[in-house]
Computed example of a mutant assay.
Amino acid sequence: MSNDQETIWGPYLSEAGFTIIPHHLLFINSLVTEEMHLTASEIMLLITLISFQWKPKTKVFPSIKTLSNRSGISERQIQRLILGLEEKKYIIVNRRTSNVNIFDLSPCIELVKNLIKEEKNYFRDNNMDSKDFRNMKNIGIFLRKNIMK
């Protein structure tokens, strides 16, 4: 962990744990079509699920109760949100007879990776500097028009 992060969060962050969330996931609604838009609760649930994925290409299996406790969302609402994330194809759920499901986050991860790749390719192909472009106000509108056709 960088010293800057330690200054911001304190020296015990690496011991307490943290989750890396790509910026493109945080502003996903400005990058995807309307049918793929996520509610704030769906994003919170996705972030909570991501916090369980410690190694590449692994599935996660927190219980509904654990997801509820960690996210502050009721168990019933968690169940509805899972269905929504499945319908929008952000996750795949392998339902088990017990209270524990197996969640595959690879659709979400691949979507974000593809958004980043397409954005970089577009900037490269058009001799644009993506770092300068990030400061523009309407990046989402631009990306939807030019990348998410």
Rank of each mutant, 00 (worst) to 15 (best):
2 S>F: 06
5 Q>W: 07
5 Q>M: 13
8 I>V: 08
10 G>P: 08
12 Y>Q: 15
14 S>K: 08
14 S>V: 10
16 A>T: 08
17 G>K: 04
23 H>I: 07
24 H>K: 04
25 L>C: 05
26 L>Y: 03
26 L>T: 07
30 S>E: 08
32 V>C: 00
32 V>Y: 00
33 T>S: 15
34 E>P: 08
35 E>R: 14
35 E>V: 04
36 M>V: 00
36 M>D: 00
36 M>F: 00
40 A>G: 09
41 S>C: 13
41 S>L: 02
41 S>P: 01
48 T>W: 07
50 I>K: 01
51 S>G: 14
53 Q>L: 09
53 Q>E: 06
56 P>N: 13
58 T>M: 15
61 F>T: 04
61 F>K: 07
61 F>C: 09
66 T>M: 03
71 S>N: 12
81 L>K: 14
81 L>F: 01
81 L>V: 02
82 I>K: 04
82 I>P: 01
83 L>E: 04
84 G>C: 11
85 L>S: 00
86 E>S: 03
87 E>N: 04
89 K>R: 14
92 I>M: 15
93 V>S: 08
95 R>G: 07
97 T>G: 03
98 S>I: 02
98 S>M: 13
100 V>I: 08
101 N>Q: 07
102 I>M: 01
103 F>M: 04
107 P>G: 00
108 C>V: 05
108 C>K: 01
110 E>L: 11
111 L>H: 03
113 K>C: 07
114 N>K: 05
114 N>M: 07
115 L>P: 08
118 E>L: 12
118 E>S: 02
122 Y>D: 13
122 Y>C: 15
122 Y>V: 10
125 D>E: 14
126 N>V: 01
129 D>N: 05
132 D>C: 05
133 F>S: 13
134 R>Q: 07
136 M>L: 04
137 K>N: 08
141 I>N: 10
143 L>T: 09
144 R>D: 02
147 I>P: 14
148 M>W: 03
